[in-house]
């Protein structure tokens, strides 16, 4: 099977001796929506930097769609589109020129580049700003500009390094809708983010990296199944009576007694809570997870 990305025994030691990657192995399937998670300094950006040739690897093998980057870096690079964490375009260029110039670096003719620039700038709501200097854009617009620029050569793999950092909720949602559509059309997406709920909602597979090592690499579903305990918040139509409790569950009742937090351990049935509430004529209006499930696992894995 040809993977979109295949990394084996990848090591990186920076000048000064810091070992950022200690021989990681990673495979990303074609068409996947893949999350690479880890705390700051874990090695995420180094891994991505090596993939897109901004960081020199110390040793190991990296293949993109079966093309070894050491053997044919030019071909391998064509598969990749990169949206970095920091704004890295020429701020004095116009929005249109930023995108069209990038196309030129991929050997795309001006006519095709102009057509694609129009297509992607329109899709990302930047067409009206095409003649503005890019430094005049808002933070969210700059992020979208980097996405348009990364897509101009229509890559097979799109790498997004913290794409929603500092982006407001509405924009974040529209950005994810756009990325999801790209993924549905066949583009492999690799994402790093600190918003773990985003990774939980969007990604199919996940790798967690810590201190230069992959500590988990599985599907999001499989990972979530390993959770032993979840906390649910139940909003009730009326208050529960004073002193109400269920001994088999750990329950925290809010001050107005209309919201309860219930810890459910693996194997326990949440139906018992509904039955108990029904017995005292209290209805559940809504129910949600207290905290992000992935976040709990993440913290557990990182702490070892």
């Amino acid at each position: 099977m040809t993977y979109a990305i295949e990394i084996s025994d990848l090591k990186k030691r920076y000048e000064g001796g810091f070992e950022a990657l200690k021989g990681i192995d990673l495979k990303v399937e074609k068409g996947d929506f893949f999350a690479l998670l880890g705390p700051n300094g874990a090695g995420k950006s180094t891994t991505i930097g090596i993939l897109c040739s901004l960081v020199n690897k110390s040793s190991g093998k990296v293949s993109i769609f079966g093309t070894d980057v050491d053997e044919n870096f030019a071909k391998a690079k064509k598969y990749l589109g990169v949206v970095p964490q920091e704004f890295n375009f020429n701020v004095f260029e116009t929005v249109f020129n930023v995108v069209v110039t990038q196309a030129g670096f991929y050997g795309i003719s001006k006519v095709v580049a102009a057509e694609r620039a129009e297509k992607y700038l329109k899709q990302l709501d930047l067409w009206d700003k095409r003649n503005d200097q890019s430094r005049m854009l808002s933070g969210g617009m700059k992020r979208r500009l980097m996405i348009a620029r990364a897509l101009i050569h229509e890559p097979e793999v799109l790498i997004l390094d913290e794409p929603t950092a500092g982006v407001d909720i509405e924009l974040r949602r529209s950005m994810w809708e756009f990325i999801k559509k790209l993924n549905e059309q066949g583009t492999t997406i690799i994402l790093t983010t600190h918003y773990l709920e985003e990774a939980e909602q969007l990604c199919r597979n996940i790798a967690i990296i810590n201190a230069g090592e992959i500590v988990e690499n599985t599907s999001v579903k499989a990972l979530l199944k390993t959770l032993n305990q979840e906390t649910f918040i139940l909003d009730l139509d009326v208050s529960v009576p004073d002193g109400w409790d269920l001994p088999e569950f750990n329950i925290v009742i809010s001050k107005d007694a209309t919201t309860i937090e219930v810890e459910v351990i693996k194997g326990q049935s949440i139906n018992a809570i509904f039955k108990a509430l029904d017995a005292i004529s209290v209805n559940v209006v809504s129910m949600r997870n207290k905290s992000n499930r992935l976040e709990e696992l993440f913290v557990k894995l990182i702490k070892g």
Partner: peptide
Amino acid sequence: SVQELLVSP
């Protein structure tokens, strides 16, 4: 912005 060139082929 030199990265624009470095990531390209």
